[in-house]
Measured scan of single mutants.
Amino acid sequence: EAHAAIDTFTKYLDIDEDFATVLVEEGFSTLEELAYVPMKELLEIEGLDEPTVEALRERAKNALATIAQ
């Protein structure tokens, strides 16, 4: 499951495998979680700032909209 989540994140969020791995290690496994989890939870991840989190959430929401079509 972790590998599938990493693949999904790299494909749809335009991030590298290392960043995707950090997200999975922090407990995220779906685009929905990244799109809708409280921003505070993402900001608790070391190295993430508000602009990065906002961009990540926007990419996740856009990916979900694209997949739904």
Results as ranks from 00 to 15, higher is better:
57 R>P: 04
4 A>N: 12
4 A>H: 13
13 L>S: 00
66 T>K: 12
19 F>D: 03
2 A>L: 13
4 A>V: 13
42 L>F: 09
44 E>N: 13
14 D>I: 03
43 L>I: 08
10 T>C: 08
51 P>D: 13
34 L>F: 05
43 L>T: 06
32 E>D: 08
45 I>V: 09
60 A>T: 03
26 E>V: 14
12 Y>L: 09
37 V>T: 13
43 L>N: 05
56 L>G: 00
36 Y>W: 11
41 E>W: 05
15 I>P: 01
59 R>P: 00
29 S>C: 09
18 D>L: 11
50 E>S: 10
18 D>C: 09
44 E>H: 14
39 M>R: 09
24 V>N: 04
5 A>Q: 07
54 E>R: 14
50 E>L: 15
57 R>V: 11
56 L>V: 05
60 A>Q: 01
26 E>W: 15
34 L>N: 00
52 T>V: 09
46 E>G: 11
45 I>M: 06
30 T>H: 06
2 A>P: 10
25 E>K: 15
7 D>G: 09
31 L>Q: 00
28 F>V: 05
43 L>H: 05
66 T>P: 03
35 A>L: 15
56 L>W: 02
17 E>H: 12
37 V>H: 11
38 P>G: 08
3 H>W: 08
18 D>H: 14
51 P>T: 11
26 E>A: 15
43 L>M: 11
38 P>C: 07
10 T>R: 06
7 D>P: 07
27 G>K: 02
44 E>Y: 10
30 T>K: 07
3 H>R: 15
65 A>Y: 04
4 A>T: 13
40 K>T: 13
17 E>P: 11
20 A>Q: 01
40 K>G: 12
47 G>M: 07
6 I>C: 05
34 L>R: 00
65 A>F: 03
30 T>Y: 05
21 T>G: 10
69 Q>V: 10
13 L>G: 01
12 Y>V: 05
18 D>Q: 12
60 A>F: 01
40 K>V: 12
51 P>K: 14
8 T>L: 15
23 L>G: 00
58 E>Y: 02
8 T>W: 12
21 T>D: 04
1 E>P: 12
1 E>T: 13
54 E>P: 02
48 L>F: 10
30 T>W: 04
53 V>H: 02
18 D>I: 12
10 T>M: 15
35 A>C: 07
24 V>G: 01
35 A>Y: 06
14 D>G: 13
33 E>W: 02
6 I>L: 07
55 A>Q: 12
9 F>W: 02
59 R>M: 10
15 I>Q: 01
19 F>W: 08
44 E>R: 14
25 E>D: 11
51 P>M: 12
53 V>M: 10
18 D>K: 14
55 A>M: 14
8 T>H: 12
33 E>S: 10
68 A>H: 14
11 K>C: 07
10 T>I: 15
35 A>P: 02
46 E>P: 15
59 R>H: 06
69 Q>M: 05
66 T>S: 10
66 T>N: 13
17 E>V: 15
22 V>F: 14
15 I>F: 03
8 T>C: 10
27 G>C: 03
5 A>I: 15
60 A>P: 00
13 L>P: 00
39 M>I: 15
6 I>T: 06
14 D>N: 11
6 I>P: 03
45 I>P: 02
22 V>Q: 13
35 A>W: 04
36 Y>L: 12
10 T>K: 09
7 D>H: 11
38 P>R: 03
20 A>M: 02
38 P>N: 09
65 A>K: 10
19 F>L: 15
27 G>L: 02
65 A>L: 09
46 E>V: 14
41 E>G: 07
9 F>E: 01
52 T>H: 07
64 L>W: 02
25 E>R: 14
16 D>H: 08
68 A>P: 08
41 E>N: 10
62 N>D: 11
32 E>C: 09
35 A>M: 11
60 A>M: 03
21 T>A: 13
32 E>R: 07
56 L>N: 00
18 D>N: 12
65 A>P: 03
64 L>Q: 03
3 H>L: 14
69 Q>F: 00
22 V>H: 11
36 Y>A: 11
27 G>R: 02
62 N>V: 14
24 V>T: 07
39 M>L: 12
55 A>L: 14
64 L>K: 02
4 A>G: 11
48 L>Y: 06
68 A>K: 13
53 V>A: 15
25 E>Y: 10
17 E>Y: 13
6 I>R: 08
43 L>D: 02
66 T>A: 14
1 E>I: 10
12 Y>W: 15
68 A>D: 10
28 F>I: 09
22 V>P: 01
32 E>N: 07
55 A>E: 09
13 L>N: 00
57 R>C: 05
17 E>N: 11
69 Q>G: 13
19 F>H: 04
53 V>P: 02
31 L>N: 00
27 G>V: 02
16 D>G: 10
47 G>E: 04
40 K>L: 12
64 L>P: 01
40 K>W: 14
8 T>Y: 13
24 V>Q: 04
58 E>Q: 10
25 E>P: 00
